[in-house]
């Protein structure tokens, strides 16, 4: 059974779009195969018909319409006007320099304020914690006793009243006991 050239290859041959070796192969086959040659001729005829068809004349007034359109602002809905200068720039400048500087300034300011506030907050928090540690270390619990009195027994005001003598739950009691011990000779 005779092998034929694939029809899409014949189509590419008509357009001269095969590499030189493939073109020569198809040329040789078409010389000996009437069926493929007939298809190639039909395809060529269609090609010629379309290429020979009279082209449409360009309307003479079209340039005048385009020229007047050049002076108008773009009406194309896809792009806003402020994007046009960006698109018109050479490729190595992707963003205008002033806009870039402004962006860097804004970002830098935000970061500076955040860090400065954060560090100031941290410093304040740390100093308060330090003061609390020092007070606790001094066992001078009276400074931090909201009642400025020995721990009352009234449970309504002293949450540790029931266990008021137990230093493990009542830090004020512990401080009192330590002071009493110190006063004793």
């Amino acid at each position: 059974m005779k092998r034929h050239i694939p029809e899409d290859r014949i189509s590419a041959w008509v357009d001269r779009q095969l590499d030189p070796e493939a073109m020569a192969q198809v040329d040789a086959h078409l010389r000996s195969c009437a069926e493929c040659r007939s298809l190639a001729e039909e395809m060529s005829a269609i090609t010629e018909a379309y290429r020979s068809a009279e082209p449409l004349d360009l309307p003479p007034h079209l340039w005048a319409r385009i020229a007047s359109g050049m002076n108008e602002p773009p009406t194309h809905g896809r792009w806003s006007r402020w994007l046009q200068p960006l698109l018109a720039r050479p490729s190595w400048v992707s963003v205008p320099a002033p806009a870039l500087v402004l962006m860097v300034f804004i970002v830098g300011t935000v970061l500076f304020v955040e860090f400065r506030s954060a560090s100031r907050f941290e410093q304040r928090a740390l100093s308060q914690i330090e003061a609390a540690h020092q007070a606790m270390a001094s066992l001078d619990a009276e400074k931090h006793n909201p009642f400025h009195l020995p721990a009352p027994d009234d449970a309504k005001v002293n949450p540790f009243a029931r266990s008021s003598v137990d230093p493990l739950v009542n830090p004020f009691s512990a401080a009192q006991q330590i002071r009493q011990q110190e006063r004793q000779p």
């Binding site: 319409r65 385009i66 359109g69 194309h76 698109l87 018109a88 490729s91």
Partner: peptide, 21 residues
């Protein structure tokens, strides 16, 4: 013909505006 004329005009307006790119 009318569509071809309109789209030709639109095409070249776009070409002129985007030529810088």
């Amino acid at each position: 013909r009318e569509e071809a004329e309109d789209v030709t005009q639109q095409t070249f307006l776009i070409v002129i505006r985007r030529l810088g790119s």
